[in-house]
Structure formats: structure tokens, C-alpha cells
Simulated assay, not measured.
Amino acid sequence: MRIDRDRPAAGPLVRGFGAGGFKVDAPDGTMGVYPALLLTATRADTWSPPPIEALDEAALAPLLGEPIEFIVLGTGENVRRPPRALVSALEERGIGIEPMDSRAAAKAWGILRAEDRRVAAALYPLGS
């Protein structure tokens, strides 16, 4: 699927997704395809996520260095709940986590960034 919209937000945006991963463009015009990725307002990074039941703060550490309100968690093909220990640890930091399937998370990322929300995203591969 391709997501067409003008660049309404600063930072990397997901422009499409498919079997190969998420197509992300950066403000400098470069484009990359990531099977799984971490997104902040300033960067997109390749991610090798653990199984969802083992997801912890360490796996999300690259996101936690920036001031964020919450993390959009794309859990693959279907919505899966993150471990309660992770949710609690993030809540202690004042950070929420919103799980959804990875397609919805990729779309939500662009909408939330267009609203200039302080959000980060962690997207599991679409085949998981």
C-alpha cells in the first residue's frame, strides 16, 4: 500500500508498506525500506525486535532518549498486547504505549506527526 500525502510534518514519514517492509522518506529526500523500524521526530532506524512477549525497555531504548508522550506500537499483522511489565515501566516514565497492527500504526504515525505530537513508533514486521 502506498500512502500519499504532502509532507505535513517534520521528520521521517512512512510513505508506504508491503511485504518488503515500510517505505520511509526523510526530510532530506532520502528513501529507505525497513522490515521493522523505530521512528522518532528526527530519525528512522532499522530495528531487530524481540518476540512481543519479550519486549522490554531495552528494546525501545533508542526511543526513550527523546521527550515523548507515548509510543505507537505496531505489533505486526494483528494487534497484540505488550507485556504488562513494559507498560508499567513506561508509565513510570510518564510515557504511554498504544498497541495496534503495524499497518494502522504506520498510518497513525503520519497523522500524529502532522499534529506535531511528541510521539515515537516501534513497528514490528508485517509478517509477524
Score class of each variant (00 low, 15 high):
83 P>L: 02
122 A>W: 09
112 L>N: 10
24 V>D: 13
19 A>G: 08
38 L>R: 10
16 G>N: 12
88 S>I: 11
70 F>E: 14
128 S>V: 13
71 I>W: 11
109 W>L: 07
4 D>P: 02
116 D>T: 15
87 V>R: 13
39 L>I: 04
48 S>K: 15
21 G>F: 02
20 G>N: 14
63 L>T: 04
20 G>I: 13
51 P>N: 09
123 L>K: 04
87 V>C: 06
2 R>P: 05
119 V>Y: 03
28 D>F: 09
70 F>P: 13
23 K>T: 15
99 P>G: 04
2 R>A: 13
94 G>F: 02
118 R>N: 11
115 E>Y: 04
61 A>N: 13
6 D>K: 12
34 Y>K: 08
122 A>M: 08
72 V>G: 14
66 E>A: 14
61 A>R: 15
86 L>W: 04
16 G>P: 06
45 D>Y: 11
119 V>P: 05
26 A>N: 14
34 Y>M: 05
17 F>Y: 11
17 F>R: 01
12 P>N: 02
102 S>F: 02
3 I>C: 07
76 G>F: 05
28 D>G: 05
57 E>W: 07
53 E>S: 10
125 P>G: 03
99 P>N: 09
35 P>H: 10
122 A>C: 03
23 K>L: 15
17 F>D: 03
33 V>W: 02
63 L>D: 01
59 A>I: 06
35 P>E: 11
93 R>S: 05
56 D>H: 10
125 P>N: 06
124 Y>R: 05
22 F>L: 09
47 W>Y: 03
122 A>S: 04
88 S>G: 11
120 A>M: 07
76 G>D: 01
19 A>P: 12
50 P>L: 02
33 V>L: 09
29 G>E: 04
80 R>N: 15
48 S>F: 14
50 P>N: 06
8 P>E: 15
89 A>D: 04
26 A>C: 11
118 R>M: 09
66 E>V: 12
105 A>S: 01
72 V>K: 12
128 S>Q: 10
107 K>M: 14
14 V>I: 11
68 I>R: 08
21 G>V: 05
32 G>P: 11
111 I>F: 04
22 F>D: 03
108 A>V: 07
115 E>C: 00
112 L>D: 08
39 L>M: 04
15 R>M: 08
110 G>N: 14
55 L>T: 05
108 A>Q: 07
31 M>E: 15
28 D>N: 14
64 L>V: 06
56 D>Q: 09
31 M>Y: 13
123 L>F: 02
26 A>W: 08
90 L>A: 02
55 L>W: 07
92 E>Q: 14
33 V>A: 05
90 L>C: 07
36 A>P: 02
112 L>F: 13
115 E>V: 02
81 R>C: 14
61 A>M: 11
113 R>A: 08
4 D>L: 13
72 V>R: 13
2 R>L: 13
124 Y>W: 01
98 E>Y: 05
14 V>T: 03
37 L>Q: 10
47 W>L: 00
103 R>G: 03
91 E>H: 15
47 W>D: 00
51 P>G: 06
84 R>E: 15
71 I>S: 08
12 P>G: 03
107 K>I: 12
85 A>G: 00
61 A>G: 11
96 G>V: 00
120 A>N: 01
101 D>P: 07
54 A>R: 11
